[in-house]
Design a protein around this nucleic acid. Structure first.
Lengths: 343, 343
DNA sequence: TAATAAAGTTTACGCGAGTAAAGAATAGGA
DNA sequence: TCCTATTCTTTACTCGCGTAAACTTTATTA
């Protein structure tokens, strides 16, 4: 009997002894009411656990308290991890995160943006699919809602891009690999869905040439987001021909590397830095599973934490300022070399 | 100029030449209006891409078109995968999925259920955290919304439980392992968060005894959801002592097995079924990554597809019937042995 | 203590749709 | 062609809360 059934704000206001408009003001921003009033409301709140109706609240507000988060492929723990961090930060800021995954499908990505429209988000953090995204749809969406583009940079999408410094990260890894052994060949998909792959290839070529080394690029076939499988098949194929341009393989991302390691294992290669090893393999992303490959994967970490934090900070400031940024900004965070056993 | 700005259903009704109540009826169920009327509305729809306001639609309806999906830990690809399937089925049924992850935290799980309340879901698919869940909160929630419990069976939670047949699956694996080599020891966490682990241990003991073999259980310490790490540390510890009760290790789940394999690799063990191998390792779940471990992991697959399909079908029928089920049902789908290289 | 700014109360309207009721229009069958 | 069962249209009310305006009460300051 301690909690009377409160049906709406009217009844809650009566229960708390405060007028409804003031209660409404409180829910919008608790600090906007006098301390004594706030305490009365919060006391009442403890006694009857009322919550304003989500739908009614958002119907009339020009600006909701929802923040959309769109990722290309949630079944990839990399995105699950960054989404988790972003969600936590969004909640901490008093907003409601709406997480959507495009599951690798551009039609679903478009549909997700449509769903978000219906929710009138105050702001959006968008990691697009990349090459296969429908650019026009993304652009139209970004014109209507304050959007921060992250992970996959698509020119003109979002007021700001927050992401990983592929050029710096690639260079750091190459420097390390060159210093510690044979210069690396670059292993990637021929038609990667994600634009980061292209940045990494270019950075590889440029760095190698600057070091006076000749770049070797191994491109394997495969479509979609099943990267481990593509790395595995491609790796198997490449290793069977035994015409590797280098014994050091720098994979475009960790998921490819995981597949490649599996292929190398199956082919009887010993991977690592010891004298008894016939291959070195490195990845890129510091994927959550890279700590548990055999051998553990040497890779480059994104600054997950900085990217998530800056991303959320940026949407919030876009929301506050209301205005569109004058020019699109790019914020890149440096990667960190993670030395493990594979290279 | 082809799309006039339509602000609400009133304007859209005028544009389409049909009255607003009829248009409203159409959006509720297109088949509830005459064919000719439907065609007029759909023609208008193509010309101006109007969508009913999500918030206004849901405000007055006793039953929304939202279906909540709550998973314990989305960064685990296993859950990401099953969530993906469920989402797809829900969308295909004309409902809007709302996916929430508890990130291993009971407070967040409770908060997620609270958020769902606000959205008045027509139904919910709930995979609880398990041992650490706040049972009272789950129960209170299930009393208010038609809920299907999946993955982790908690007695009394949800009208129906849909899940994996741990007993059958465990037995199948043991039969296989016993037939093909040394009887397995069971490797698990001492305090697993998920109730499936307990079912598997009991099934292991029972099956071993029935076969006239003595069960050996290896319990390693560790809290939380970082299973690979727990498997790795625990495995390392166990392997260093070289007092393994068996050379065949049956891990309680694939993520532990992945960690264990990494530990075995580091300790210089060759894992597999060949004569040159000193260990066999098996898992349970057919985790998306189990195809790419070194060696590839022998495991037991959940019937993902059947679980997702039945789960969604069940919520939908609960929603249709409106009534609570008379007694809680349990639907279990058998697992399938996936033979790979590790055992 | 009086003046004034700040915060609360009352009253009233709006949002965008769901939905009920009564009457008009349409379709299908005899 | 007429009759009846459907389906639409009109009209009107509801939901739960945001928000504006005018007024009253409470804090702050001089």
């Amino acid at each position: 009997m301690d909690s009377p059934k409160i049906r709406n704000m009217e009844e809650f206001a009566a229960f708390s002894g405060i007028s409804r408009p003031t209660v409404s003001k409180y829910f919008n921003d608790p600090k906007s009411v006098r301390r004594t009033t706030r305490e009365k409301i919060e006391k009442a709140l403890e006694e009857c656990d009322y919550r304003p109706n989500f739908f009614a609240v958002n119907q009339n507000r020009k600006l909701t308290k929802n923040i959309g988060i769109v990722v290309p492929y949630l079944a990839d723990p990399f995105f699950a991890e960054i989404a988790r961090r972003i969600e936590t930060l969004v909640i901490g800021s008093g907003y409601t995160p709406i997480l959507l995954s495009s599951h690798g499908d551009p039609a679903l990505e478009a549909e997700n943006l449509n769903s978000l429209r219906a929710i009138k988000p105050a702001g959006v953090l968008l990691a697009p699919l990349g090459r296969i995204s429908d650019r026009d749809i993304l652009e139209a969406f970004c014109a209507d809602f304050p959007t921060v583009n992250f992970d996959a940079n698509i020119d003109g999408i979002g007021e700001v891009f927050v992401g990983h410094n592929n050029a710096q990260a690639t260079e750091v890894m190459i420097q390390y690999l060159v210093r510690s052994g044979e210069p690396p060949a670059f292993f990637e998909m021929r038609t990667p869905p994600n634009p980061n792959a292209n940045k990494r290839r270019l950075a590889y070529i440029e760095t190698m040439e600057r070091l006076g080394l000749s770049p070797h690029i191994i491109q394997v076939k495969g479509e979609g987001w099943d990267f481990e499988d593509i790395g595995f098949r491609g790796g198997k194929n490449v290793l069977s021909k035994s015409d590797l341009p280098s014994k050091t393989i720098f994979c475009s991302n960790d998921r490819l590397a995981i597949g490649f390691l599996a292929a190398a294992y199956e082919a009887g290669h010993r991977v690592g830095i010891g004298d008894d090893c016939s291959l070195r393999v490195a990845g890129h992303d510091n994927h959550p599973f890279s700590r548990f490959t055999c051998p553990t994967l040497t890779t480059i970490s994104h600054d997950y934490s900085a990217i998530a934090t800056r991303g959320v900070e940026t949407v919030l400031s876009l929301i506050d300022s209301g205005a569109h940024a004058e020019s699109r900004q790019m914020v890149l965070f440096d990667g960190e070399l993670i030395m493990r056993a594979s290279a």
